[in-house]
Simulated scan of single mutants.
Amino acid sequence: MAPASYQASTRGDKADKTTYSQTTSSNLSSSKTPVSKLLEGKGDAVFSIRPNDTIDHVVGLLKEKHIGALVVTDQNGMLKGILSERDIVRQLADQADGIMDQSVEALMTSDVVTCTPSDPLTDVLKRMTEGRFRHMPVVTENKLCGIITIGDVVNYRLKEVEYEALRMKQMIVG
């Protein structure tokens, strides 16, 4: 028995002999999606702190903004480091006394891995996974222009895969 969506061919259906098969470039096109595409939907808002701010101030900002990391910038907006919830928790595990009064500079990661808007999302995801970090600042010409999380990248890729699956289903069904 034929599926409910099946329609028998009619006389004019066979006129177009062109096929629309997949190619290597069409199959790999999503792997070339740049970071800038993700930022278009997410926006370029970045919450930052200064190296001399206290951890107490940072914890309040993380809670208020519902985020997991803050970039550390100087007065000119140049990237100096990044401070995540994980950095704070590690310090708490080592030494809980007086942590809230410590400066950001004492706990921040100063050797920050960054990406550019033109970097492919799949490359960024790979670097984040291998480096075991969840936040990556986006920099262009030494200027901070956004921040992405591993969740942002995974969600974007899931939407791409869902869209590709829908397109294939439409090609099959007609």
Rank of each mutant, 00 (worst) to 15 (best):
T73W: 10
E164S: 02
K159L: 12
Y6D: 04
D152R: 06
D94G: 07
A93D: 07
Q7M: 07
I88P: 02
T122I: 09
N142V: 01
D74Q: 13
M1R: 00
G98F: 07
P34Q: 03
L28D: 12
A45G: 04
K65C: 05
S36A: 15
S118R: 11
P3S: 03
Q91M: 08
K14I: 15
I147C: 06
V153F: 09
V89P: 00
Q91L: 03
Y6R: 11
S118Y: 06
I49M: 10
L144D: 07
G174K: 03
T54L: 11
G174N: 09
R90S: 14
C145K: 00
K159N: 10
E105I: 00
P117F: 01
V124F: 00
F47N: 09
M128G: 08
P51L: 14
I148H: 07
I67M: 00
V104A: 10
C115Q: 09
T18V: 14
D119E: 12
E141L: 07
I172H: 10
Q22W: 01
D87V: 06
V138A: 08
M171D: 14
C115V: 15
A106R: 05
D101Q: 15
R127G: 09
C145A: 07
L28G: 02
K143F: 05
T140I: 04
M171K: 06
K63P: 03
V139Q: 09
A69M: 00
C145Y: 01
V153A: 12
L125R: 11
K32E: 15
T19I: 15
R132H: 12
D56K: 14
V153T: 09
K169I: 05
